[in-house]
Design a protein around this nucleic acid. Structure first.
Lengths: 250, 250
DNA sequence: AACATTTTGTAACAGTTTGTAAGGTTTTCC
DNA sequence: GGAAAACCTTACAAACTGTTACAAAATGTT
């Protein structure tokens, strides 16, 4: 896939790789070949990978610094991954994924019950491994949603405090109005069909008769139109609505 | 694109099972036999399982109430699980696990990239499924571990002395008020439904009529509002309440 | 044990928000 | 121009929420 960069050789202790990446990952794996493969793969994805080949190095590494995620083999020369997790569980604040050739349901259940966040059976496709890693980082990194606010022209929306502003002036909205505006702001200047809005707002399929969306748009529109040079909801006959910035009077 | 008209078969809407269990799980699965199996299995483990057989029922169920976890099939009669996740991702605050016969790496990666927390390939051992469910509930349910104190903006709470402070000034609270504030502080800036609060505070299922939570919120709110630039409980009509920091008037 | 104080739940009332219905208004198409 | 379709808005009832008032329960004190 990619040319072999640097031989990882035989790292006696945890050694840090990669370009001071986005995530710090600790890899516990005694199979050197596999480890090298994983280290290279993750480094390419801008991860700072620390590699430990046995339980002793693993302990040192864990004590030495914090990680965003740990990938751990179960069968090791000097210890069991299960034991290690049991021992360090209380000290770990990041997700741990087991990566093992032990494929029985019992082993998997054991690993998960011990507190592991996932259990992958070797051999694992690198892309799947990466998707799993991203999934776990995603959930552990963002206790509060990252996209806590969004803006579109003079409109800004804070999803946390649920406050909308137009030209930095607070725009008091009811719950439903805010929800609707948020949906528009997610895909601004884009046509959103009544069917789509109905599904998002009401939560079931549009029956073709209900006027709820019309009504909500009307009410939201009234408030938006009250502020000049802000944003406005445009209706496209037979298609739906779209949120646009208002052309300043030319 | 256009809604597929599907002859409404049997369970018109989500049906609730089990003994008002510990966790509320939403199961989206069109294979009735498998679904029944899973429902029974989870019910035995004291889960309150809601079952949806198609996308339509799923949408209803998601809008109807909150869940602790969602298990979703990918291939459905009237929709794709991938589509549904894409559509509801922003509205879901709980983990979602795909459970599908589609076993290719591409499918798994797609599901995870869409935001799923896990992807299990059918057939899956029930015990493994349960271990996975527990693992995901474990990580999502305890955003705040057993810390003896917690802070959120100008608010700090000491669980040991049971004293709350706003901007370092002691805030005298009654027992119930403190308990409620603690629950809010565990998941600050996040919507907490009346159902959830009722369960946490009163300890049984919300009947839809009781106003106790309103009352307690009202009383706690009165004390919180007395301190400027502190924190405030915001109400989101039809959804619940959330604790937020107060924007000092800029 | 009896009283005072605090805390909490229920009921009732008031204000706000939302859905449905019905009638207007604009646009499209003969 | 006129009719039909699509859309907007007013009106009103129903639903939801906040708060006050008061009684019951819990707690503390003498």
């Amino acid at each position: 896939m990619t040319p072999v960069q640097h031989p990882v050789s035989k790292p006696s202790i945890a050694e840090t790789e990669s370009t001071s990446g986005n995530y710090r990952i600790l890899l516990l794996e005694d199979d050197e070949q596999l480890a090298e493969l994983i280290v290279r793969f993750l480094s390419e994805r801008h991860c700072e990978v620390t590699y430990a080949a046995n339980g002793r190095d693993f302990m040192k590494a864990v004590h030495h610094k914090d990680y965003d995620l740990i990938i751990a083999d179960v069968v090791l020369p000097d210890a069991s991954g299960f034991q290690l997790l049991e021992q360090f569980r209380s000290q770990l604040s990041c997700p741990l994924i087991f990566l093992s050739a032990l494929s029985s349901v019992d082993d998997q259940v054991t690993g998960l019950r011990l507190g592991a966040h996932d259990y992958l059976v070797k051999p694992v496709d690198p892309h799947l491994l990466w998707a799993k890693i991203e999934a776990h980082l995603r959930t552990s990194q963002s206790p509060t949603p990252a996209n806590a606010s969004m803006t579109f022209g003079p409109l800004s929306i804070d999803l946390v405090s649920r406050q909308a502003r137009v030209k930095d002036k607070p725009l008091p909205l009811t719950t439903n109005e805010f929800d609707l505006l948020q949906i528009f702001a997610e895909q601004p200047a884009r046509l959103l069909s009544r069917e789509y809005l109905f599904r998002r707002v009401i939560g079931r399929e549009f029956d073709g008769l209900d006027r709820v969306i019309d009504m909500r748009v009307s009410r939201l529109r009234k408030k938006l139109d009250a502020i000049p040079d802000g944003v406005a909801i445009q209706s496209i006959r037979g298609r739906g609505y779209s949120l646009n910035t208002v052309h300043g009077t030319p």
